[in-house]
């Protein structure tokens, strides 16, 4: 077996070591600032040498991220960061490769590469900044925008159904599917750490506010007036509890998730659904919470690691196959390849 991601750190790094000399040029109040801060905060602890991190991004506001991390990085073309990262990781498995992308970049123009990276399970960390809008092109609806949204390109409202990103990632056989949001730094840091530790494609959807073109799209999940009723934080092995006073829970009624009141005497915490991040069926149900309701009430939006399972990564299998064939056949001298096995002489 070829071991990857095992470079020992010889010197202590700080978050400042990851801040380059270039000015950060996102709009004031953009959720991207928080994401940059959390990444710079956790990177010194992740255990890699600074020179072994590589960021690959596509095009869009999110993709400028690469310029703001003092690591190796490539700001590439729209939608293709995942494809470029695949080639890099396949050929340099020892590097820690991170893709920064957005809802337009990953799910619209780059949708094909996105699903295939997840399927092939490269050990690459994908941070998808979802703001449900095109920001850099100044405000068109995106594949995650809600139906009916009025934007520059949908003045009478969008007629499109948005992607359910978590369902898409699970359907593409993603081995790690998580969701967090810009306004919860601690939670984001925890999720990013888990994404880093996961050996395989880690998909982290980060709800990110665009104050200019789609302000407040996720405020129900981040602001104190509503977040406790609308956001459900899941943790492996813990029951699904939420609500203003942690007084609500999710119970499984056969295959149907139902909302229960923990204070009305009908259900106790012991009746609740216990989150199991290895359970794909349940992960699929959690992902579907976005579109489901119970007795007319919509279900809360899950945050945290919805699914995480170990399966072989592409780059390790590729390296192992090379090693196995090399062991069996040995390296062929170049001259033998040039001559082939059927030659003739002309005198």
């Amino acid at each position: 077996m070829i071991e990857t991601n095992s470079n020992p750190v010889t010197e202590r790094l700080s978050s400042k070591d990851f801040a380059p000399d270039q000015d950060v040029k996102w709009c004031p109040g953009c959720g991207d600032y928080s994401i940059l801060k959390q990444v710079q905060t956790i990177f010194p602890e992740l255990g890699f040498k600074k020179e072994d991190y590589v960021f690959i991004s596509g095009i869009g506001c999110s993709s400028r991220f690469t310029y703001y991390m003092d690591t190796y990085g490539m700001h590439s073309i729209h939608g293709r960061a995942t494809a470029i990262a695949s080639g890099l990781k396949a050929s340099r498995p020892e590097l820690s490769v991170w893709v920064v992308t957005g809802d337009g970049d990953a799910l619209s123009i780059g949708g094909n590469h996105f699903i295939h990276l997840l399927r092939k399970n490269f050990d690459i960390k994908i941070l998808l900044f979802n703001n449900q809008i095109y920001g850099l092109t100044k405000g068109q609806y995106s594949p995650t925008s809600e139906t009916g949204i009025v934007t520059k390109s949908s003045p009478y409202g969008s007629i499109e159904e948005p992607f359910n990103t978590a369902e898409l990632a699970l359907g593409a056989k993603g081995s790690f599917v998580a969701r967090t949001l810009d306004r919860d730094p601690k939670h984001m840091q925890a999720v990013l750490r888990q994404a880093h530790v996961h050996k395989g494609a880690s998909f982290v959807e980060i709800y990110q506010n665009c104050p200019v073109f789609n302000d407040g799209a996720f405020f129900v999940f981040s602001e104190k007036e509503t977040k406790k009723e609308e956001a459900l934080y899941v943790e492996h092995g813990k029951p699904l509890v939420y609500g203003q006073n942690a007084d609500k829970g999710i119970k499984l009624d056969g295959f149907k998730p139902s909302i229960v009141d923990l204070n009305d005497g009908t259900s106790s915490i012991n009746d609740l659904w216990i989150h199991d991040e290895k359970d794909k069926v349940k992960a699929g149900m959690l992902a579907a919470f976005t579109d489901l309701n119970h007795n007319g009430y919509h279900l809360p939006r899950p945050f945290g690691v919805l699914y995480s399972i170990d399966r072989p990564t592409y780059e390790v299998q590729m390296a192992n196959q090379i090693e196995a064939v090399l062991k069996k056949k040995g390296k062929t001298p170049l001259n033998e390849i040039l001559s082939g096995d059927k030659t003739w002489e002309i005198a």
Partner: peptide
């Protein structure tokens, strides 16, 4: 690397070359 499409083919090659 048998890529998912022509674009991914060249992009993966760019990634490998970068590496």
């Amino acid at each position: 690397f048998q890529a998912e499409d022509e674009i991914a083919g060249i992009c993966a090659a760019i990634g490998a070359s970068y590496g």
